[in-house]
Design a protein around this nucleic acid. Structure first.
Length: 224
DNA sequence: CTGTGGATTTGCT
DNA sequence: GCAAATCCACAGG
């Protein structure tokens, strides 16, 4: 075993195993819970960036009763949100407030909308690059890198132009969701963050996070 | 064609 | 705690 060229920041091995599309062919709530503890990987030419999913939110399609007025799919398919209405396991990345991006994963089956918003990760691989992407010093705190839906996009370098519509369960995809065997512990369920106060879905319990995890965003966790 | 507001983050008070 | 930053999808005329 002649030492193979040893990885020098080599982009070789992705952690764990790729998820199957069937993993995402379920309700957004179900997929949200199942996603906690899974690993989001972004493989670029130079670097492998990875983080464990520690906080998500479910957004329901308009076929639900009552419909989810907080979801982008609420008013039916548009050029922007068409990915949500497509098959499961695809990335829906959109821009917000002109400066930021948010990343989602489509659920359910083709023709039926539903998605999961990724709200926070625990950085695992490529922390130095994440800090650079965020404009922070190397060694920045984990929670400053990927705690928040737009922060994690910035840390991983995700944009609408490059990543919207990518198939996350294709083994050739630069962006994947993988299972490294981590078992999620206690899960905290709360209302979703940033919902318009006038929205009837304001208090729906569709936000899920690993209890007590330091990288979870938003209000302090309730004692569960 | 134009007006409006958003699944946010940051910096200043 | 609050408001600025700053783009574009979408709805209405």
């Amino acid at each position: 075993m002649a030492a193979k060229k040893q990885s020098r920041g080599n982009v070789g091995e992705l952690p764990g195993k790729l998820l199957a599309r069937s993993f995402f062919e379920a309700s957004p709530e179900h997929v949200s819970l199942a996603l906690l503890g899974k690993v989001l990987t972004h493989k670029t030419k130079q670097r492998l960036l990875a983080g464990r999913i520690v906080e998500v939110e479910a957004y329901l399609g308009p076929h639900n009763d009552p419909p989810d007025a907080a979801a982008h799919s609420y008013r039916g398919p548009t050029p922007r949100n068409q990915v949500i209405f497509g098959p499961a396991g695809y990335a829906y990345v959109y821009s917000i407030y002109g400066r930021y991006f948010c990343a989602n994963i489509s659920c359910e089956i083709e023709g039926q909308a539903g998605c999961v918003l990724l709200r926070a990760l625990e950085p695992m691989l490529g922390l130095d690059q994440m800090a650079r992407n965020r404009g922070l010093e190397p060694g920045a705190a984990a929670k400053d890198l990927t705690s928040g839906p737009s922060r994690l996009c910035q840390a991983l370098g995700l944009t609408r132009e490059l990543h919207n519509g990518l198939d996350l369960v294709d083994k050739k995809s630069p962006l994947q969701v993988r299972d490294d065997g981590f078992l999620a512990g206690r899960v905290v369920t709360t209302a979703r963050i940033g919902i318009n106060p006038a929205n009837p879905a304001l208090e729906w319990p569709l936000r899920f996070a690993l209890a007590g995890h330091p990288c979870v965003s938003g209000p302090k966790q309730m004692r569960g």
